[in-house]
Simulated scan of single mutants.
Amino acid sequence: MDGSWAGRRVYGDEPDEPDPGPKQGHVYVELMGDPLDGLLLDVTGWPPQEIVDGAVLMSDHGQFGPGGRSDYEPAEGGSGDVGRFLWRGDVP
């Protein structure tokens, strides 16, 4: 696990959980751009094609408010590791 991710919040974890941060042995991507900017997404066990496809994630803070979703896709030109997902927009 990347040491710079210590203390960071993971998408889907509740902030009041006893240990809401990244877990040893898990693989994460960093979400970049509104509305989930800075959160980590646990992609442990995801098939490679799902990582290439990105993720549409529930978000109460996007354009469509509660019940809306935010589309994130892999950043281009990575170093071969999973890395980062960039925000592409919000969907209802």
Rank of each mutant, 00 (worst) to 15 (best):
M1C: 13
M1S: 14
M1I: 14
G3Y: 15
G3C: 13
S4P: 14
S4F: 13
W5R: 13
A6V: 12
G7S: 12
R8S: 12
R8P: 11
R8G: 13
R9E: 14
R9D: 14
R9C: 13
R9H: 14
V10Y: 05
Y11A: 07
Y11L: 07
D13G: 11
D13H: 09
E14G: 08
P15D: 09
D16V: 12
E17S: 08
E17Q: 08
P18A: 06
P18W: 07
P18Q: 08
P18S: 08
P20S: 10
G21F: 12
G21M: 12
G21Q: 11
G21P: 14
K23G: 11
K23Q: 13
Q24S: 11
Q24R: 14
G25H: 10
G25N: 11
H26A: 13
H26R: 14
H26T: 13
V27S: 02
Y28G: 10
Y28P: 07
V29N: 05
V29H: 07
E30D: 15
E30P: 15
L31H: 12
L31N: 12
M32D: 15
M32W: 15
M32P: 15
G33P: 15
G33N: 12
D34Q: 13
D34K: 13
D34L: 10
P35F: 10
P35C: 09
L36N: 10
L36R: 11
L36T: 10
D37S: 15
L40Y: 12
L40S: 11
L41I: 11
D42M: 06
D42C: 09
D42L: 06
V43N: 06
T44Q: 08
T44V: 07
T44R: 08
T44H: 07
G45W: 01
G45S: 06
G45A: 08
W46M: 03
W46A: 01
P47W: 01
P48F: 00
P48C: 00
P48Q: 04
Q49M: 06
Q49D: 02
E50P: 03
I51W: 02
I51D: 01
I51H: 05
V52S: 02
D53F: 00
G54C: 01
G54R: 00
G54K: 00
V56A: 08
V56C: 04
L57E: 04
L57F: 03
M58Y: 10
S59C: 14
S59Q: 08
S59V: 09
D60P: 11
H61P: 11
H61W: 14
G62F: 09
Q63H: 13
Q63P: 09
Q63S: 07
F64M: 05
F64Q: 04
F64C: 04
G65Q: 06
P66Q: 05
G67W: 03
G67Q: 04
R69E: 02
S70M: 03
S70P: 06
D71A: 02
Y72S: 01
E73T: 04
E73F: 01
A75I: 05
A75K: 07
E76L: 05
E76H: 04
E76Q: 04
G80V: 00
G80M: 01
D81E: 12
D81M: 03
D81P: 06
V82K: 00
V82Q: 00
G83A: 07
G83H: 01
G83C: 04
G83P: 10
G83M: 02
R84Q: 01
F85I: 00
F85Y: 02
F85V: 00
W87G: 04
W87F: 10
R88S: 04
R88D: 03
R88Y: 04
G89T: 03
G89R: 03
D90P: 04
D90G: 07
